[in-house]
Design a protein around this nucleic acid. Sequence first.
DNA 1: GCCATATTGTGAGTATACTGTCAATTAATT
DNA 2: AATTAATTGACAGTATACTCACAATATGGC
Lengths: 170, 170
Amino acid sequence: MPNSKPTPVTMDAVYTAPGYLFRRMQQIAVALFIEECKAFDLTPVQYAALVTISTHPGIDATRLSAVIAFDRSTLGNVIERLETKEFIVRKPAPEDKRVKLLYLTKAGASVLNDIMPSVDKAQARMLQPLKPADRKTLLSLLTQLVDLNNEASRVPLRAEDALEHLGRSG
Amino acid sequence: MPNSKPTPVTMDAVYTAPGYLFRRMQQIAVALFIEECKAFDLTPVQYAALVTISTHPGIDATRLSAVIAFDRSTLGNVIERLETKEFIVRKPAPEDKRVKLLYLTKAGASVLNDIMPSVDKAQARMLQPLKPADRKTLLSLLTQLVDLNNEASRVPLRAEDALEHLGRSG
DNA sequence: GCCATATTGTGAGTATACTGTCAATTAATT
DNA sequence: AATTAATTGACAGTATACTCACAATATGGC
């Protein structure tokens, strides 16, 4: 062993690290989504928010952030942009003056309906290079890993059922 | 009006989408890295840049961005922060007045050496919830997928070998 | 009823991650 | 050699994604 550097660092320290691979796949996933959905002027996060408001009409921002595992502060900006595009509206909650409830507009429901095929296409393209069996394996492992690591993230996912017990009716 | 019957949207449109899972894992990966490495004041991206400058002393910003698949504009800010922390230095290239070459400082080499165990710990924690065999499977599939989807990302990875032909010596 | 505590939305601040554009400089073409 | 191309680093702008902090409001303990 020739004695020169303290630690022989190679690029493998980057390329084989799971964190690096997750970052790359996130980059690729966003790029494919934007490419397929460019006609709709919606980002992946805005799409997720829109879906959730569609399935949970009248949800508030804090609960929305928990349902899609999204930071509350960041979500404020996302909501603002969706409101500017007139895809959603904010209405003050009658029983709690702090809360603003979120609803889809007709335009929001329409764009959500129309964008679906493009979203599906983008999602399919992400896994397309793999063999079908490998796609299933990867999705299964990823789903497990995200679930088992849920508490490790700064903004853990709190699914809909759990939310009902966290609210005012707890 | 093409659609009289709107598609019944469920949260599965979000939760089972590969793009959503990749975003969650990226969130989790960053959170674990920051947690394990908080003593070193380095982000995952800054770490990757530092490793690459260590293995490629005198690399310039454009080439660095290609080697870690990182946007050139974003990288400018990353480099600036690493310079402020005095982990790297920028030196003007003698043969090309546009180029600034990047080198580790002693403090940079030191922090890179010291942070390694914490980085390894963070990387291990990301996959820890899976069985060892599943970890290998996931890593293998992820590596394949990132490689096969390389051109889909906005900033494709251009590995070191390819770079030598893109440079001045082509 | 009152006070400590918690929640909600919001704001500032930092750090990716991308799109453009731009001037300075270098390389390629004629 | 002179015009054109391409490259480099920098800047502005947008959008996540997180931190901490704050005022307004609501809740629970007493």
